[in-house]
Design a protein around this nucleic acid. Structure first.
Length: 329
DNA sequence: ATGGTTTTTACTGCGTC
DNA sequence: GACGCGGTAAAAACCAT
């Protein structure tokens, strides 16, 4: 009831020196994107949340893209030179951040010559210990399993890599703070992924997470709330707009409907209808209404299906929305 | 634990194709 | 008659206290 949305400026830590370089980077990105244009209207494509979206008509051109960019961030050109690149980048999605030393099993030296017998014994011992250290204790194995689970689920949902990284970091922090105790690894991993999606503005609803997770929604939600509180994650409520492009493409609706739906959401949100309501249902109702207005009607059932809400919810939101809109138009 | 709010479940009636 | 749609009541889920 009091969940009126708080528009906070998040991440307002803009340091002066970084600015020009950030610009340079974004210019570079823009150039890369200009080569591609929308098949429908030749508009510029814009990458957002693992989806390629046309800026003009909001058509989702490509989903589940692979993020080819570097996983590190460069804050100035010096740093960028340093970081780009020798060897594989470190990644938090591996339990040892991919930094393991691996010792060859062959008893040969760097020139391929056999190693003297007395050294061989030493090598063998080192190898053994290396393996022991790699998966040191239960928490390491725990992490290993959890991170592979996060990766599996993220792949199944088709979320980009940076989200997985965030999820991995969250899991590590949860583990450090000993928040896993008494909870299933699966549950915490799912919750971390859900949280990561939200922080990265790539909305995947709990329902969607549930389809790939091995735990039920209730537990994911409960665990999510717990860890987000314990880790001090400041989450803003999900904006209904974020669901619009995905739902619309799933329903084969045109860009006009998307724009209309977003309009409806904006106007009705102004009027305070969103407060306390589920963003998915809200978006679904707006899409339904927009589909009617644009003569591309979809049934309530169809919309309800893709949005994972019931028709009743759509009806209720829809009624409220058109009531407000009726006064306005 | 409790109470208030929202969503879901289940069911009914009405109009249309 | 099947289907879409609107409405309702009761159960379930959710959330803050």
């Amino acid at each position: 009831m009091v969940s009126q949305r708080t528009r906070e400026t998040e991440d307002s830590e803009t340091e002066e020196e970084t600015v020009e370089d950030e610009e340079e980077i974004s210019k570079h990105e823009a150039r890369a994107q200009e080569e591609l244009s929308c098949p429908e209207c030749d508009g510029t494509l814009h990458e957002q949340g693992g989806e390629k979206i046309c800026e003009d008509c909001s058509l989702v051109v490509e989903e589940d893209m692979i993020d080819p960019g570097p996983e590190w961030r460069a804050f100035d050109s010096k740093e960028r030179n340093q970081k780009s690149r020798v060897g594989s980048p470190t990644t938090v999605t591996m339990h040892d951040k991919g930094l393991t030393t691996s010792i060859d099993w062959r008893d040969k030296d760097a020139y391929g010559k056999s190693i003297a017998p007395e050294k061989r014994r030493r090598m063998r011992r080192m190898r053994k210990w290396q393996e022991r250290i790699r998966t040191k204790d239960s928490s390491e194995r725990n992490l290993q399993f959890a991170l592979s689970e996060i990766d599996r689920m993220a792949s199944a949902l088709g979320v980009p890599r940076d989200v997985r990284e965030v999820a991995s970091v969250l899991y590590r922090r949860a583990l450090e703070k000993d928040l896993i105790r008494g909870r299933s690894i699966e549950g915490v991993a799912s919750a971390c992924l859900y949280a990561a999606c939200r922080t990265k503005n790539i909305p995947r609803s709990l329902e969607e997470i549930e389809t790939v997770a091995r735990v039920e929604r209730k537990e994911i939600g409960r665990t999510y709330r717990y860890i987000s509180q314990e880790l001090g994650l400041k989450m803003e409520p999900v904006e209904p707009e974020q669901y619009v492009p995905r739902y619309c493409t799933e329903l084969n609706l045109s860009e006009a409907v998307q724009i209309k739906a977003k309009e409806i959401i904006e106007m009705t949100t102004e009027a305070g209808l969103l407060s306390g309501k589920s963003p998915t249902g809200f978006a679904a109702a707006a899409i339904y209404a927009a589909s009617l207005l644009c003569n591309e009607k979809r049934t309530q059932r169809e919309v309800a299906e893709v949005a994972n809400v019931t028709e009743v919810t759509i009806r209720n939101r829809y009624q409220e929305q058109i009531k407000v809109l009726g006064i306005l138009d």
